[in-house]
Design a protein around this nucleic acid. Structure first.
Lengths: 183, 183
DNA sequence: ACCTGAACACCGTTCAAGT
DNA sequence: ACCTGAACACCGTTCAAGT
């Protein structure tokens, strides 16, 4: 399946991801590619050998958060409680606000890499199940789809960001969303 | 106050705005500045003589929609009805979805031109009044500020856009927002 | 006072040359 | 097979020269 890579190529890929993660955490955004490549100690061409584009590299970083969100979604589903949807959506909004690149990928996964599309698809499946359970229990409006809830969460994430990513505002906006979903 | 401008400068300004409006309506976005200047039949330098930046030109276009929204807000306020906030927010979401540049300006007015800041400020004032009346009537949660509602509307606008600007989705999302605002 | 457009800055992407 | 970095494309912005 996966073709074997030369060890140095694999190492450079890791150096690029690590440099991107460090710069993102230190400065809030992944720097331009030339600068990023310099931080990683490689040439820009090496970045393009390991990733189809700069966006794909950022996306690979976001995938870590995406999988974490997926894990939380499955845990919420496993509780078996009808209102586990609320806890999951609250957590999702917080994670999307904390990581702009994760929000970007979750909002517009259209031209993402196969692993990302897989994870987004899995996440959607979890949301379908969580929503279905909440709707069966009569706790959420029946006219909403999982895609609706997905898009609304992305919307609330933007609202919180516009409010300066303030935690209290995030709590209020999430409360508005959850109340609005009620049947 | 306003220094007198030479007639040809004023005319070029109008040509640029008209070209930008036409391109936006025909192709969904204002083209790069070199192309826009060519459409208007002027040089790029002329664009910079009339606007501080390309963004400022786009913003000047959005200002038209902003003033329209302001007019509607005042009309909603003039009805004197406690639930005129709902009608206004519904209209606001539709207008923001229909015009990305308007949504951009309403979402992030920070570094906008004085006339735009004025209009955004006026709009905020109208929203304060509409919200206050709805809260006094016990129709909307008391813990929400006008800024909260402002940000939430921007968020719903994004959600609708992510749903492909579908009108039915817009209606559902607006319904979720309005229900969520209820006391 | 205003106009033009070549030149510059910035950043993502490609590709010829090298190991 | 992989690496490097100069070169290219694109687009916003500036400014010297012209009217």
């Amino acid at each position: 399946m996966t073709p074997p890579r030369r060890a140095d190529a694999e190492r450079n890929r890791g150096l690029l991801l690590e440099a991107a993660r460090e710069q993102r955490d230190r400065r809030g955004a992944v720097p331009p590619l030339a600068e990023l490549a310099a931080c990683a100690g490689v040439g820009v061409g090496t970045a393009y050998r390991n990733f189809p584009s700069r966006g794909a590299l950022v996306e690979a970083l976001a995938l870590e958060g995406l999988r974490e969100l997926l894990t939380e979604g499955r845990a919420a589903l496993a509780t078996g409680e009808a209102d586990s949807l609320d806890a999951f959506l609250t957590r999702a909004v917080r994670m999307l606000v904390a990581d702009p690149s994760l929000a970007e990928v979750v909002s517009r996964p259209a031209d993402a890499s196969p692993p990302t599309l897989q994870a987004v698809g899995d996440l959607h499946g979890v949301l379908v199940d969580l929503l279905d359970r909440a709707q069966q229990a009569g706790r959420v409006r029946a006219d909403l789809t999982a895609a609706d809830v997905h898009h609304l969460v992305c919307g609330v994430q933007l609202a919180v960001r516009l409010a300066g990513s303030d935690a209290a505002a995030g709590d209020r906006f999430t409360a508005v969303l959850l109340a609005g979903l009620r049947a």
